[in-house]
Design a protein around this nucleic acid. Structure first.
Length: 585
RNA sequence: UGGGGAGUAGCCAAGUGGCAAGGCACCGGUCUUUGGAACCGGCUAUCGAAGGUUCGAAUCCUUCCUCCCCAGCCA
């Protein structure tokens, strides 16, 4: 479709779709290539290495690679970059496919593996040998490093650089046949040992490596390096725009060198963008793997992990993640996106869609002294004020209730307008109540509140027009569902986890409060058999997702994100100010 | 001291010679049966710096500064 003269971008500015379409330098290039007729449709690829779980950073790449062909017409391939069998596993390819699908993308029939091309890649290596552009090198890894030179000094040629084509052909065949031990020989491109770009100093194409590959088994004992495999895989698949992250910018000359010197069927173009970073978050595979393997978290899908599996379990939606990826933009400047931005994308999505429910995290018993013993009323509660179509539900109300401990203060400060002795508040969708007494135990701790209820305020409004400043959530004690609630917070205490004390590492910044488990939460009865994955808003608290650890009659909920909390902000400010005052004295 | 990139508000980020978009965060206010949401306003950016070209420069030229990446038989 994108072949007509005006091109897909030449529409009027009033088109709402046009206005909401993401715009960035990569899409500009794609649009230009389509406009000039360089390409008639776009083919991209998302090329994960199956050596770990996908994380939110990958979501940015997925959003770009799948989003572009969707917008401009074309297709995106899912290709596993599986050239290093010592690190790669089937578990990871399964999780990666699940996560990409979960995000809502579809690669159709275009599922590929770099290992599909091992045969072709090998034949092309032979071609390079025949044309005098590759040689078998007997230097070991340490020697290769020595010969490579440094950033500021040129390297020197390998003593094996000038072997004859025949000898190279024979040696390479024997490498392939398994005649040499791991690491003893490599096939290298013959480019320029004095090149200012180290990637061009006779890079290794093949290494001898005996490891069972998750797909090819023990068929090979030589494996191609990334640089040699990636571009040619792109060429084989007819990729038009090979989008990768900035650290590969230095590799582009090599990428192009291979394409130039090999009889490939197509010439792809590599484009680089800045990878995603988020405050209070670690997004390197090395770190995530360490957190999992050393037990700092409970697995790849621990809800504190930035993996797609983790944030999915936590309660993030694919829609929120996709919106996030679109809104952060794509550029070449290194940047760190505020975690608050991700959280806000989730709230925006869930605010419109998540059913409202009542759940008391830290229960405080309330006895309504003037409410009839044994009476139960079914109150009508709105499921979602943002969505009338969501309807209402019945919630039982009775003489003994639970409210949130945080919603009562015996000696309230000026700005606190929830429940306090002598004060009236509204119970959401029920009645106004007034606190008349406070019971305490021998240690002076509050055990329960005594209140009176105004029976003329049923449903939550008074005929005389008075309106309490606060509305509280509540649960009928006799009908409450006991639940476990897991309060998750940022995994790291520092915006930059790399900012650690001398002699330590990023793990010094792990947040000991990243998980707080509340075993005694009380939920409204409608949640008794919440299915894992159900996401609701606990009114006034945040969005919570039923966890797979839920058991019949005892749900477990994960807090995905809190609601914005103005009161918490006021408290924090007051605390900071009083602290400052004391300090200056 | 080699090569490759990047610098626009606290954080992302548009802008490609004609008075510097938008979002997040933050601060006010309106409204409110969620201290939520929504709505209104503020956040008043010497466009890394200095020169130059031009009637006019974030955009073009020169020099400088700062930050990031590269010396795996990882990707």
């Amino acid at each position: 479709m994108p072949t007509h003269d005006s091109g897909p971008h030449d529409r009027t500015g009033t088109d709402p779709i046009e206005e909401s379409r993401p715009k960035d330098f990569i899409r500009d290039i794609v649009a230009e290539d389509l406009r000039t007729g360089k390409h008639t449709s776009v083919v991209t690829r998302f090329p994960p290495e199956p050596n770990g779980y996908l994380h939110i950073g990958h979501a940015k790449s997925i959003s770009l690679n799948f989003g572009i062909p969707k917008e401009f017409g074309g297709e995106c391939h899912l290709r596993f970059d599986d050239t290093n069998p010592s690190k790669e596993e089937q578990e990871y390819v399964d999780s990666i496919m699940e996560d990409v699908r979960w995000l809502g993308w579809d690669w159709g029939t275009h599922l590929y593996y770099a290992s599909d091309y091992f045969g072709q890649l090998h034949d092309w290596a032979v071609h390079l040998i025949r044309t005098g552009l590759a040689y078998v090198c007997d230097l070991n890894a340490d020697q290769v490093r020595e010969y490579r030179g440094t950033l500021t000094h040129p390297g020197k040629p390998s003593p094996f650089r000038d072997r004859t084509v025949e000898e190279n052909l024979d040696l390479f065949a024997r490498m392939k046949a398994g005649e040499y031990p791991d690491g003893s020989r490599t096939l290298r491109a013959k480019i320029d040992m004095a090149h200012p770009n180290l990637n061009m100093r006779d890079p290794v194409l093949y290494r001898v490596l005996r490891a069972t590959h998750h797909r090819t088994g023990d068929a090979w004992c030589i494996y191609p390096m990334y640089d040699y495999a990636h571009g040619q895989s792109d060429a084989i698949e007819g990729i038009t725009h090979s989008v990768c992250t900035l650290e590969f910018e230095d590799h582009r000359p090599l990428y192009e060198w291979f394409i130039e010197h090999l009889p490939v069927p197509h010439k792809p173009r590599q484009l680089e963008f800045a990878r995603l970073n988020i405050t209070y978050t670690a997004l390197s595979k090395r770190k995530l793997l360490e957190l999992v393997q050393k037990g700092y978290v409970a697995g790849w899908d621990d809800p504190r992990m930035p993996t797609l599996a983790g944030i999915r379990r936590r309660g993030y939606t694919p829609e929120a993640i996709r919106t996030f990826c679109e809104k952060i933009g794509v550029a070449k400047a290194n940047s760190v996106v505020d975690l608050a931005f991700l959280e806000q994308c989730l709230r925006d999505d869930l605010n419109k869609r998540a059913p409202r429910r009542m759940g008391v995290l830290r229960p405080l018993k309330v006895v309504l002294e003037n409410y009839p013993e044994g009476q139960v009323e079914e109150m009508d509660l709105v499921n979602n004020p943002e969505d009338p179509a969501a309807g209402t539900r019945k919630v039982p109300f009775s003489k003994v209730l639970y409210v949130e401990q945080d919603d009562f203060m015996e000696e309230p400060p000026k700005k606190f307008f929830r429940l306090a002795p002598g004060r009236e508040v509204r119970l959401r969708g029920a009645y106004f109540i007034t606190c008349t007494g406070v019971d305490k135990n021998e240690r002076g701790e509050i055990t329960e509140l005594r209140c009176t209820v105004d029976l003329n305020t049923r449903g939550g409004s008074a005929t005389d027009g008075r309106s309490p400043k606060a509305t509280l959530h509540w649960v009928s004690a006799a009908h409450a569902v006991n639940a476990e609630v897991r309060l998750y917070d940022r995994l790291f205490t520092k915006a930059n986890p790399e900012d650690y004390p001398e002699g330590q590492d990023y793990k010094a910044n792990l947040n000991p409060q990243s998980l707080v488990t509340l075993a005694g939460a009380k939920l409204e009865p409608s949640l008794v058999s919440a299915q894992p994955g159900l996401i609701v808003q606990f009114e006034r608290l945040g969005y919570f997702c039923a966890d797979r650890d839920s058991t019949p009659g005892r749900p477990v909920f994960n807090r995905a994100v809190t609601l914005k909390d103005t009161w918490a902000k006021v408290q924090a400010k007051d605390k900071a100010e009083s602290g400052k005052g004391a300090g200056s004295r």
